[in-house]
Simulated scan of single mutants.
Amino acid sequence: MNFTLHQLKVFTVIVQNKSITKAATELNMSQPAASIQLKNFQDQFDIPLSEVIGRQFYVTEFGKEIYQIAERILEQVNTIQYKTEAFKGLLSGKLKISVVSTGNYVMPYFLNGFLKQHPEVELVMDVSNKTQVIKDLEQNEVDFSLVTVIPKHLDLDEEAILENKLVLVAAKDNPIDANIAKTKKLFRTTPLIYREEGSGTRYTMQQFFKQEQIEPKIKLELTSNEAIKQAVVADIGVSIVSLLSIKNEIEQDELKIVPVKGLPLESTWKLIWLKKKVLSPVAQAFLHYVRQEKLSVYNSYFSWTDDY
């Protein structure tokens, strides 16, 4: 066998994209060039690595095993590069993080200082709902994930970085009766806007309602925190959201926090990663930065939450 590292890279990217065309775009290659590299790589094996059925690209079982080996080889090659740069006093490479959508109000503040310290580091951050974030972690596609609800089926390490408060919000002029707000009756009579299934916020809300034996009056479901905020501002209903996500709306007097017995719901933002994962030098450096700087980041950007 006489395959090259470039062929390994082309093969892994094609497998990840399940498409030669998409892989070629990601690699800044022409589609024919990517196809030739794939063919030259596959020709070195007696067993097919992939097949095309009805224009759809599929990886064989043998191909999947070769893909896993190829990934490990490329990771080791990257480690050589990282260590070389680190020896010269530089840190470079990719940092891959998946973040639940509300965590988008948290993670940039932990990345800001780190990326300024290490300008050669390339950040890849995917913002999605909890289900997709956990899937990315489970398939070892990221270094870290940021969540508040820890999956129980994975063997993980974790680092708590910030407290999270969920509060009930309403439009500024919504005439919620203060006496009703102190009772469970509020959730039975007031239209409530929910996040979609798979959302960590929705899960926490449901656990609260289950514990309190409340059957809320659900008005509608929306798939993003921004959509929920706009719906509440428009006075379509009320919702339970992360306090961190509504700083601007509170300052602009568009939303108000409704004091309710049992709220705010409190959880913790945690950085999680697979326990068996060998962290790259970049990932190790970021974890060290978070541990050293999380108090400073809190004091600089999040101490305003103490007032609520």
Rank of each mutant, 00 (worst) to 15 (best):
T79A: 12
Y67V: 03
S19Y: 04
Q44H: 14
L91P: 06
N28D: 02
E122D: 01
S50N: 02
I66V: 08
N28H: 13
K22I: 02
E85M: 11
S92Q: 14
G113N: 00
E61A: 13
G89D: 13
T21L: 09
G89H: 07
S19L: 00
L74R: 11
L111W: 02
K94L: 04
T21Y: 06
L5N: 11
Q16N: 15
H118I: 06
T79W: 09
K96N: 01
V59P: 15
N112M: 10
M107V: 15
Y82A: 14
V59N: 04
V52F: 08
Y82M: 12
Y105M: 05
V121S: 02
P48F: 00
F110Y: 03
V121C: 01
F87A: 15
L111E: 03
K96Q: 05
Y58P: 01
H118M: 09
V59E: 04
E26D: 15
M107S: 06
I47F: 15
I66A: 02
A33H: 12
L115R: 11
N112G: 05
F114R: 04
Q81C: 08
N17D: 13
A23R: 09
L90Y: 06
L74M: 08
P108S: 00
L49S: 07
M29A: 00
G54A: 07
M29C: 04
L5F: 08
N104Q: 12
G113Y: 13
N104M: 10
E61Y: 15
K83M: 15
I47M: 03
M29T: 08
T102N: 04
L91C: 02
S30M: 02
E75H: 09
F45Q: 08
G89Q: 02
I20V: 14
L27I: 01
F45A: 03
G93L: 12
T79F: 09
Q44L: 14
Q68A: 10
N28L: 13
T102V: 11
L8A: 02
S92A: 15
I36W: 06
V52T: 15
V106I: 14
M125Y: 03
V106D: 02
T21R: 08
G63T: 06
N28F: 03
S101Q: 11
E71I: 10
Q42A: 09
Q56N: 11
S19A: 04
Q37W: 06
K39G: 01
V99I: 12
M29V: 09
I69L: 12
T21V: 14
E51D: 15
D43T: 07
A86M: 10
T25S: 13
P108C: 04
E51G: 07
Q76A: 07
F11I: 08
L74P: 12
Q16F: 10
D46T: 15
L123Y: 04
Q76I: 01
G103Y: 03
T21H: 05
L8P: 12
I69H: 06
D46G: 07
S92V: 08
E65V: 05
H6R: 15
